[in-house]
Computed example of a mutant assay.
Amino acid sequence: MTNPQIENNFKYHSPKEGQPAKYEVIRNKAKELAMLIDEECPDSREKVAAQTNLEQAVMWANAGIARN
């Protein structure tokens, strides 16, 4: 027995036409926000958490594009 969702989540997804451009747009917008957070937030655990979660958001957004 195989689970199609698990199979899809754990396989390599080569970029399809148009996907690399979408990845770049998401990364660039996230970078803008990361720079804003870095400039406006005092150095703190919360700032680190915000940056880490932003990185995770980018990774999940890219996974959503790749997997679907």
Score class of each variant (00 low, 15 high):
E24M: 08
A30M: 09
N53W: 04
M59D: 15
L36D: 12
Y12R: 11
A30Y: 06
K47M: 08
M1Q: 04
F10T: 07
G18V: 00
A63E: 15
V25H: 10
E46K: 02
P42L: 05
R45Y: 14
P20H: 05
E46S: 04
Y12I: 10
V25R: 13
Q56V: 01
A61Y: 09
N9Q: 12
E46P: 01
L36G: 00
K31L: 15
M59K: 14
A57T: 05
A57L: 15
Q56F: 12
S44C: 10
P20A: 04
A21Q: 15
A57I: 06
K16V: 01
R27F: 05
A50S: 04
V48R: 11
A21V: 03
K22A: 14
N28A: 12
E7M: 07
H13S: 11
K16G: 05
N9L: 14
S44P: 09
V58P: 12
D38N: 07
I6S: 10
A49Y: 08
W60V: 03
V58D: 15
P15S: 09
I65A: 10
A61L: 13
T2N: 13
I37R: 06
H13P: 09
Q51S: 02
K22C: 06
A30R: 04
K47C: 06
A49P: 00
K16S: 05
K31M: 14
M35V: 01
M59Q: 15
R45F: 14
I37Y: 11
Q19E: 15
V58H: 11
R45C: 08
N8A: 11
A49C: 02
Q56S: 13
D43R: 04
K22G: 03
E55P: 00
M1Y: 06
A49N: 08
A50I: 00
N68R: 06
A57Y: 14
A21N: 08
V58A: 13
Q5A: 08
A49I: 02
A63H: 07
N68V: 00
K31Q: 15
L54V: 00
N68K: 04
M35R: 04
A50K: 03
E39A: 07
D43Q: 10
E17D: 11
D43A: 08
D38F: 01
H13A: 11
P15H: 05
N8Q: 10
A50R: 06
L36I: 00
N9W: 12
A63C: 10
E39N: 10
A50D: 09
Q51V: 00
I37P: 07
E17C: 00
Y23W: 14
T52E: 14
V25Y: 11
A21L: 13
G64N: 12
C41L: 13
N9P: 00
K16I: 00
I37M: 11
K11P: 06
G18K: 03
T52A: 12
P15T: 01
P20E: 12
V25G: 05
E32T: 02
F10G: 10
S14V: 01
A21P: 02
V25N: 11
N9R: 09
M1F: 06
F10Q: 13
N62Y: 04
E55K: 07
P15A: 08
A49F: 05
V58N: 14
Q56G: 10
M35C: 02
I26H: 07
T2H: 09
N28Q: 15
I65M: 13
A30P: 05
M1R: 02
E40N: 07
A21W: 03
D43T: 00
L54E: 07
N28Y: 04
E24Y: 03
E32R: 02
A61T: 02
V48T: 06
N28P: 02
T2M: 12
K31C: 09
